[in-house]
């Protein structure tokens, strides 16, 4: 109970807590680097991000310029991926479309993760009836089969790319809430949280400084994998005509316009599909790799 002892203890604690953390990240980096496949995933994602940023510089043509004389042209030296039903250059449209897909993915996942984390932290930390209420809401959101919740939201808000972000974001909330709640529960039970509380820390400090860092790695993994799902869902909604509206070069919408020419000009549907698949594949293997490196025990 002597003050010196207490001071010594905190110093010791700080030291102990810092070094395992550093070791933890080093181990993570080492593990991740060894996973060649995950590295490839990371490069694919990076490649697409660069394409999105530099789309105006590298696009060979104006993605919106209509040229009815040269419509439905197969791939050639001038149009590497051919032209669509209005004679627009498919490669240029795909490059601009990268911006849309990545934006929709990041915004909707960020939105879903933000609300999901908030709900999960609240439920896991406060427990009792708050937990029950929040988890019942999550159960209800999970009771909608697949994309149908997003579809219902769009039916109310009307078709647009912004509404797709909202819908797909809401669709992601329950997953994040569940994962965060689980991790919060396991951290909250640890004794040192009680110790900190005894020292007079507020709930806010405990959540931000002690619980949040612990839930970060499952959230990052989930967010990466969720990006893949979000991009797929958004493209699907646009394919149905419920998302981006023409003449937007959104990949799903481009695919949808290609289906009418499947007989005469299959390349219109082919290339946007390859673009979506590659980007989604990138996020998937990147996420798999992150998961293996961050937490080998975590599954699903």
């Amino acid at each position: 109970m002597k003050p010196e002892v207490v001071i010594n203890n905190t110093e010791l604690n700080v030291k102990e807590r810092k070094s395992p953390k550093l070791r933890h990240w080093k181990a993570f980096y080492k593990k991740f680097k060894r996973n060649k496949l995950a590295l490839v995933g990371g490069y694919i994602v990076l490649f697409y991000i660069l394409l999105a940023i530099f789309a105006p510089l590298i696009s060979p043509q104006d993605p919106y310029e209509i040229d009815l004389v040269n419509k439905l042209q197969p791939p050639s030296a001038e149009h590497w991926m051919g032209t669509d039903d209005k004679g627009r250059d498919i490669l240029s449209r795909l490059l601009y479309g990268t911006r849309l897909s990545l934006t929709v993915g990041f915004v909707s996942v960020f939105f879903g993760a933000f609300i999901g984390i908030l709900l999960g932290l609240t439920a896991g930390y406060y427990g009792k009836w708050i937990d029950t209420v929040i988890m019942r809401i999550v159960d209800v959101l999970l009771a909608f089969p697949g994309i149908l919740l997003a579809l219902a939201i769009i039916s109310a808000l009307g078709p647009s790319l912004i509404n797709v972000m909202v819908a797909v974001g809401v669709f992601s909330i329950p997953m994040f809430a569940r994962i965060v709640r689980g991790s919060t529960l396991s951290v909250r039970k640890l004794e040192y949280i009680d110790a900190i509380r005894a020292l007079g820390a507020t709930d806010f400090t405990i959540i931000c400084k002690h619980i949040f860092p612990n839930i970060l790695s499952p959230v990052i993994v989930q967010a990466t994998l969720r990006l893949a799902t979000a991009i797929l869902s958004a493209a699907g909604l646009s394919f149905l005509g419920l998302g981006a509206q023409p003449p937007s070069p959104e990949w799903g919408a481009m695919l949808s316009s290609g289906r009418d020419y499947l007989f005469s000009a299959p390349h219109i549907a082919l290339f946007p599909g390859i673009a979506i698949s590659t980007l989604v594949l990138g996020f998937n293997i990147f996420g798999d790799g992150l998961r293996d490196a961050l937490d080998p025990r975590m599954k699903k």
Binding site: L255, L262, G273
Partner: peptide, 22 residues
């Protein structure tokens, strides 16, 4: 399997139609 979880189903459908039906 990795490709399977990454392909958009609607695109897979269109490609199947193109190869097997058309």
């Amino acid at each position: 399997a990795l490709l399977g979880i990454s392909l958009p189903s609607f695109w897979l459908g269109l490609m199947l139609i193109y190869f097997f039906s058309v």
